[in-house]
Design a protein around this nucleic acid. Structure first.
Lengths: 376, 376
DNA sequence: TTGTAGGCGTTATCAC
DNA sequence: GTGATAACGCCTACAA
């Protein structure tokens, strides 16, 4: 249980401590002979440099701290991938920490991260108060992902939720839908822009917005649909606030004997791995998550290197991923027509059942399937 | 961008560095007057102790390193929750690192973690060679989760995959199934025990095992089903190696016009949040994930405190979660009977459609729904 | 190319 | 209670 130090390595390799230090830092001014001797000794001893001592002595850090508000959400995993990629590339190590969506825990996580004196901090969708963030930003560069800030020392990376919602509405309208409801994300992150984008897009098409209060869970999506059905105001298309909500909505629709997309089209938001599952095959809005991570890490490293002092506000454009939960609205009353729908006439057969559409899936999906199968 | 030190705090509070140190460590032998003065100065300066310097000087660490092989998998997030809970409770900080399922990256992640000289290490389903693990174990306590080891200095926490598979088989048999196939996880973690448990359970029931080569992805599950169908050897029930695979299997079955569970029952493994989604509502085997984390952290801290030197091998018992993808087999030929099934006679209507079963869901599901809706 | 002195922020061990 | 002083493991000069 003893961790070897430079001294041990130096002794074993028959050189001085200083030389070991040079080798460890990859200095070119070391003879090949000694270098390999040192490396060999280090390997045999299982030695690796003591990051803390190193950073203490050099007054620099090669560590990037990342606070993930919710590890359960695969969204963040992909952002971390992007961060990791850039960081590794530039010789930085990443340490992660989670706040469990609780402000108190998150605060503690932040403290903990700060106590390592990392070169910089990336906060993924933090829920701590803005003051805690700007306080941290006084000590080191901070980048926020999926949360905005007005602090000039803090950089931000976000998706343009208004554009995303508009993409979804445009898609549905182009399919012929007119009655499109939005299941709203309430207080959730990014719910605001998505709602605003939806309303604006509807109005620009001369359509009447129908915002239904909901939440970012599948249970909430199902509840919202049930209330629409019982109120007899079910539209022909649904734009959910996120994928979870959309999946819940689909379940409730199917429970009610309605077909998706035959009777009702559904669009999600986020393009989580869930949406890509063939069993779900959800039309949704994709956010360039890995790109979020790359941009965040890039921005942070610029600050770390003091290459920039002006704040940068990345606003990434989401994109539409069409899968099998959207189709033109039923244009005529079906033989097994639902009493909930007000669209008149036509045969819904032309819109196809979901399984019939199945083979039309995009190649993109297959790759995502692979990607998320995971080791379990 | 300047981080205050103890010196700064001492100066501002008008005391010595040593006293600040005492206050920071919560020593009782400091007058209330000075204590509050120090705390106030620290607060004003935004000072927090330098973890690395502290650990360097004290030759101890309050940091637990956690290497997560795959952040995308929510399975690990719940294990981390358990770890976090125990660690926080006992005054330890957790830093996380990810290996991205690549041995090379994982190795680097391990190195990086080690460079912080944490008090101990928890490896979640690592894919690095055993030698790398035992090497690390020479330097600090190491606990493995979801991976076994014969090294006596390493503790392990696993689920009993044999028991889990048996639970699934028993459930299916009790419903009346006789022809039950296992979609195998191949090289994947834990695939071995699950397969063995399946085979043993089948044989103990006097049934013939049918192991189908597959993988831990939904695409693989679908492929396996399609091959079973084209070979005309589709059984009445499927035990998948994990939930992803099961969902893929269900899709392929539905694509082929078969109903789940009307025509074929499907059981997953892991009880991921995916399984709990009402749209999926998958009967599956649950592993006590948070408990994994708690036990792992507990075992690690015992080693850290040198309370134990004998290895501990936790083998947790999984449990069956019955949802809506399992039902008795069709006992008679249906009017719309499938040509793939060999079971004779009966009307499958009695087993009910999935949506009809829907309301019978367990309360457990609802809580999981909430839990995983997340902030997106 | 190699070795030596100092210092990084903190803790621990002493005297006061 | 409080304040000096020597580590801790390493890096950055600087000298040899």
């Amino acid at each position: 249980m003893i961790r070897p130090t430079m001294e041990d390595v130096a002794l074993r390799a028959g050189v001085s401590r200083a030389l070991v230090s040079l080798v460890m830092r990859g200095s070119p001014k070391v003879s090949e002979l000694r270098r390999s001797a040192v490396l060999k000794a280090a390997e045999e001893l299982g030695y690796s440099p003591h990051a803390m001592a190193r950073s203490l002595a050099s007054r620099t850090s090669t560590v990037l701290g990342v606070m993930v508000s919710d590890l359960h959400n695969a969204f963040f995993a992909e952002v971390v991938d992007g961060i990791d990629e850039v960081a590794r590339d530039q010789g930085f190590d990443v340490i992660i920490n989670t706040g469990g969506r609780s402000p108190a825990r998150e605060r503690r996580a932040l403290e903990s991260l700060l106590s390592f004196r990392p070169a910089g901090l990336i906060l993924l969708s933090p829920v701590v108060p803005a003051t805690a963030i700007s306080k941290a930003a006084e000590q080191l560069p901070v980048v926020l992902v999926a949360r905005s800030s007005r602090v000039s020392t803090v950089d931000t990376v976000n998706d343009d939720g208004e554009v995303g919602a508009r993409l979804a509405v445009d898609h549905l309208v182009s399919l012929g839908h007119q009655r499109i409801a939005h299941l709203d994300g309430g207080e959730g992150t990014q719910a605001g822009p998505r709602r605003r984008g939806y309303v604006a897009a509807m109005e620009s098409h001369g359509l009447v917005p129908q915002v239904v209060s909901s939440e970012y869970t599948d249970a909430a999506g199902a509840r919202a649909i049930r209330s629409l059905i019982s109120d007899r105001v079910l539209p022909t298309a649904i734009l959910s606030c996120n994928d979870f909500n959309a999946v819940g909505a689909i379940s409730a629709l199917e429970d009610a004997g309605l077909r998706v997309p035959g009777d009702v089209s559904v669009v999600g938001y986020d393009n989580t791995s869930l949406a890509a599952l063939r069993h779900v095959s959800l039309t949704t809005i994709d956010q360039p998550r890995a790109e979020f991570g790359r941009l965040a890490a890039g921005a942070l490293l610029q600050r770390v290197r003091e290459e920039r002092t002006e704040p940068v506000r990345h606003l990434l454009t989401p994109s539409l991923v069409v899968r099998n939960t959207t189709a033109p609205p039923a244009t005529s009353r079906r033989s097994s027509g639902s009493p909930f729908l007000s669209t008149a006439g036509g045969d819904s057969a032309e819109s196809g059942s979901r399984t019939a559409d199945f083979e039309a899936k995009s190649p993109e999906r297959r790759s995502r399937d692979q990607e998320h199968g995971g080791p379990r």
